[in-house]
Design a binder for these strands. Sequence first.
RNA 1: GGAGGCGUCGCCUAGUGGCCUAUGGCGCCGCACUGCUAAUGCGGUUGGGGUUGAUACCCCUCGAGGGUUCAAAUCCCUCCGCCUCCGCCA
Length: 420
Amino acid sequence: MIDLKLLRENPDAVRTSQRVRGEDPGIVDALLDADSRRRAATLAFETLRAEQKQLGKLIPKADQAERASLLERAGALSAEVKAAEVAQGEAEAQASELLLALSNIVEDGVPEGGEEDFVVLEEHGTPRELDFPARDHVELGALLGAIDTERGAKVSGARFYYLTGVGALLELALVNLAMAQAVAAGFTPMITPTLVKPEAMEGTGFLGQAAENVYRLPEDDLYLVGTSEVPLAAYHMDEILDAGSLPRRYAGFSSCFRREAGSYGKDTRGIIRVHQFDKVEMFSFCAPEEAEAEHRRLLAWEKAFLDAIEVPYRVIDVASGDLGSSAVRKFDCEAWIPTQGKYREVTSTSNCTSFQSRRLRVRMRDGDGVRPVATLNGTLVALPRTIVAILENHQQADGSVTVPAALRPYLGRDTLEPVV
RNA sequence: GGAGGCGUCGCCUAGUGGCCUAUGGCGCCGCACUGCUAAUGCGGUUGGGGUUGAUACCCCUCGAGGGUUCAAAUCCCUCCGCCUCCGCCA
């Protein structure tokens, strides 16, 4: 099922990666051990199975006397084969369980450390100097009739909201702007399922460390996705893609659902951290040797979108301990939020190399070989946070909000005016 | 939700317990023939995983998983998917 070559050839690289992530390097040795047991079990099974096949050919041709003794041996062999098959299955299950627990190998150059140890790569735009007291997005949203968090809480609970009036129109305009940009860049637009099977969730790595943030529907054994990355990655599950057809780039629009467990008390005001939101996500299947360059391209498309909506932002290189198990490197774009006086994550792009494709069995054929592809994802626009950034950064003294030029054709107006 | 039908190697298809190491066609690849193309002939062609310096070799694979049997594409069970009809529904 899984390629262990890297691990066999260079176990130290894997140990180092585990260490900088703050995870257990000991798993490497357990894995090597399990792998050798798996190989022994496979060999034992195959040897017995070969003998069984030979016997199966002899029996129909044998005369009466021979037949009896052959059948006797075949009977005994049958039990041995079954036992060997079970042993092989168990050895394989043990090896793959350990392998699934292993995080991806951190890319060279990633800053070492935890959440606070990111490195700022770039800064774009300058936060405006306001000559009036800034309103936060909750206040602006109420003023403009764009966001209703109170009724969201009444109907669905904390961290739910309604986008109303121009708020709803603003979301649709942003989605259309994002999709237009994606299509121009050669992406295939996709509207994806938001309920997926365990296999898809597992294969994308969301049932590991992030499992507590996933909504599950036990009655149906389905999961609500936290991002369309999941259905996009699983789109080519069990397929072998022709190398000539790569890179394959998809822009998925979907609702996203997150339990936000363990974030009680964090961002409780407004729509920065919510249980349900919409998002346009870029997803790319490409050759592994192209992955690093593709990662930079996804980042460039994220920046292009933030440039278009004219909000100040910076790009950070996320530190090793904060990567998530599937990524080898992650760049976040953080928009300036005036009322918080700091930059907050609005988009994020990860290079997952073959972490997901091995689990989902998405492979490519080139020349004489078949090997796992690389998968990468990047947010093009996550709606609530982008709406927050636009409202807060483009607000005027009278509570109106100037619509960024690129968005005007999609929204059909230049400013959002207070309705109360 | 009810009734029936179907799922074979890229596509179509043969196949009712061992000679299936899966038939034939289309497509594709190679060679031959032909001024080029087309046509024709001959040969090759399921895919995946593993072992190996190489030539080679082994295992798995007939929607998935179990079962019966010395032996399963073939018989039995469960599940999944697709199609047709009925019911319900945006």
